[in-house]
């Protein structure tokens, strides 16, 4: 049975268009032209316990609005939403006890008090038994390296330190569902990696269901098998990340270094019959891009090795950014 269900979920905001100029402001006072923004417009999906799902979309696509409905911050205009059978905005107290939420841009902790004090307050708020609290704290100290941070006031933490503390805070009550909104924004590579490892470990050990929104698609590649993609309030893809990549006709790229200089014509001759595109100026390094289905890597590599002297080669998979861009483009065109 799914742990999170959304059925025809919609959120419409009514805003009014401000007219420009002084006279426009006067007109706004008397007669406002309202328009409805369909931030989320009939989205349905179901997520099973223990899944890690990447929820992606451009700015303004409706990601945050969806997350806010799933967490109970916003009341949907229409449609249904349920997390473990609870309706988030109606059963707010019970619902927020079963979820953990991390917003990358904002801390959930109290600004002025030390991290450990904040965690103790959360322990009281979520009524976490003392033994559980100590055990989890110890684990977080180990995995997230919180040891030295515990006695520092939150406002003095760096972004990376704060994010690690926020993650610990969101998981103190061991929630079955974890929402992460841009958890790696602004973090350096080492911290990013440790945050990802931690999320993966939590998922494996506790079976925590994770919903992740991010701009950094490498987060999704490292963590999620499944992605849900949204554009202009509507669902445009829901399925395996792998099949999304295969489905997309995004170009794969072979980067080849040659021992001797090769010109474009020479390379074209060597690859006679293979529909490829040549990029990069040579003469020692060429980028050969080709589309799945039209040509395949072993064939191209075979031809190159037999006809030219190759020093090194590297096969690049389509980058997820390109895949996503392509899905968007197709969606908007169709």
């Amino acid at each position: 049975m799914p742990i999170i269900e959304a059925a025809n979920l919609a959120k419409h905001f009514r805003t009014f268009r401000r007219r420009s100029g002084l006279w426009g402001s006067f007109k706004d006072l008397v007669n406002r032209k309202y328009e409805t923004v369909r931030a989320v417009d009939g989205v349905s999906f179901a997520i099973e316990p223990g899944e890690m799902v990447g929820y992606i979309g451009a700015n303004g696509a409706g990601k945050s609005t969806t997350i806010k409905m799933l967490t109970g911050i916003l009341v949907p205009t229409s449609g249904r939403v349920a997390v473990r059978g609870l309706v988030p905005h109606r059963q707010r107290y019970q619902h927020v006890k079963q979820i953990g939420v991390v917003f990358g841009q904002r801390t959930q902790l109290w600004w002025d008090i030390a991290v450990i004090e904040a965690l103790r307050l959360l322990q009281r708020i979520y009524e976490v038994p003392k033994a559980d609290f100590e055990a989890r704290l110890k684990k977080f100290e180990e995995v997230l390296g919180l040891g030295d941070l515990l006695n520092i006031p939150v406002r003095k933490l760096s972004l990376g330190q704060r994010m690690r503390c926020d993650l610990a805070a969101s998981l103190l009550h061991n929630p079955p569902v974890l929402f992460l909104d841009e958890p790696t924004i602004g973090l350096d590579i080492a911290v990013k990696a440790s945050v990802r490892d931690f999320i993966r470990e939590i998922n494996r050990e506790y079976g925590t269901t994770v919903i992740l929104t991010t701009h950094d698609l490498s987060d999704i590649e490292r963590l999620c098998r499944r992605v849900i993609m949204i554009d202009r309030g509507r669902l445009i893809y829901d399925g395996e990340l792998k099949s999304l990549k295969e489905q997309a006709v995004g170009a794969r790229r072979l980067v080849v270094d040659f021992v001797l200089p090769v010109d474009r014509a020479g390379l074209q001759r060597a690859l006679e019959g293979c529909p490829v595109e040549l990029e990069g100026g040579g003469p020692f390094r060429w980028e050969i891009s080709f589309r799945r289905g039209q040509a395949n890597a072993p064939e191209i590599i075979g031809l190159l090795m037999s006809r030219l002297e190759v020093r090194d080669l590297e096969l690049e998979e389509p980058r997820i950014e390109e895949v996503v861009r392509e899905v968007y483009r197709r969606e908007r065109a169709g």
Partner: peptide, 12 residues
């Protein structure tokens, strides 16, 4: 500033 979101996320 959006801090009210955080308030709604606590069971209080």
């Amino acid at each position: 500033e959006g801090n009210f979101d955080r308030i709604l996320l606590r069971p209080l």
